[in-house]
Design a protein around this nucleic acid. Structure first.
Lengths: 144, 144
DNA sequence: TTGCTTGCAAAGGATTTGCAACATG
DNA sequence: CATGTTGCAAATCCTTTGCAAGCAA
């Protein structure tokens, strides 16, 4: 958490941007949440501490946090962008329960390697990928 | 194309929905396009034949076409939903060029199998998945 | 002081919906 | 005829932007 704040501060300096209480609060709130968050959830949290804050600021700061390499956008295709921690949190994909929404982070190195090969076999140089596995989790299956 | 129309007609009957010239036109236009299409592109095409048609109708019919099993939504994450043929067009994923937007359909059975196993290893029963491979295609790489 | 930041409200873009007029079976 | 269906415009939803006032450096 210390180093994240430092990274953000350094990022602001490097980009000639300013440190403000709003930016600090939003970053702290984001760092405190371990799960995926939406801009609105973050806004609700921060508003409790300072009810004059605007949603636009949350959106703007979230963008900065991503830019600083501390967050990453995750799109589950439900129309709302989610954000997850990026620092000390290497690439991974998501397994999502269609029933309860629970998500699990997954990585499979063999899949990653095969993706690269598939891309290459079509003459593409793979830059990144997105993979969402949807299913029904054990809990939900047993409830039925 | 014959059978697609038949499938759609059967679907309408089964759901107690009606066959209308608009639905026919939109389905035909969709079937004629082999690439991914957006509602707006389809709207532009259909409007040439009948300029009184409304966008809402296109959106509504596109939903019916998906429901009938003839189309499938594809989300490249750029804020616009695309639709692709589904009939006689088995599951596949997409390889997308970050530079020119060109897309290639890909399938890798080993990856598919591994996805299932990864899900199972977390107690999930895989229902479906989405995989988008992003990269730079050969053409774009050589231009630079 | 300089010019980045903020909150507000309005704007945006894609998609959906309410509704009265209109067709289909 | 009873219901679906349509086009229109207004409404949504999430996110972005313009702007004047407010702050950081």
């Amino acid at each position: 958490m210390k180093s994240e704040r430092k990274i953000f501060a350094d990022y602001l300096v490097k980009k000639n941007l300013r440190e403000t209480p709003q930016r600090g609060m939003i970053l702290d709130a984001f760092l405190k949440i371990e799960e995926h968050t939406t801009a609105e959830q973050l806004y609700d949290i921060v508003k409790k501490r300072d009810n004059t804050i605007g949603q636009a600021t949350v959106y703007r700061v979230l963008k900065l946090i991503c830019d600083a390499g501390l967050a990453r956008e995750v799109d589950f295709g439900d129309g709302v962008m989610r954000y997850e921690h990026c620092y000390n949190h290497p690439h991974h994909d998501h397994l999502v329960c269609r029933s309860c929404g629970k998500t699990v982070e997954v990585v499979d190195l063999v899949i990653e390697e095969l993706q690269k090969r598939v891309a290459e076999s079509f003459g593409f140089e793979l830059t990144d990928h997105e993979m969402y596995l949807y299913g029904i989790c054990g809990n939900c299956r047993h409830k039925k």
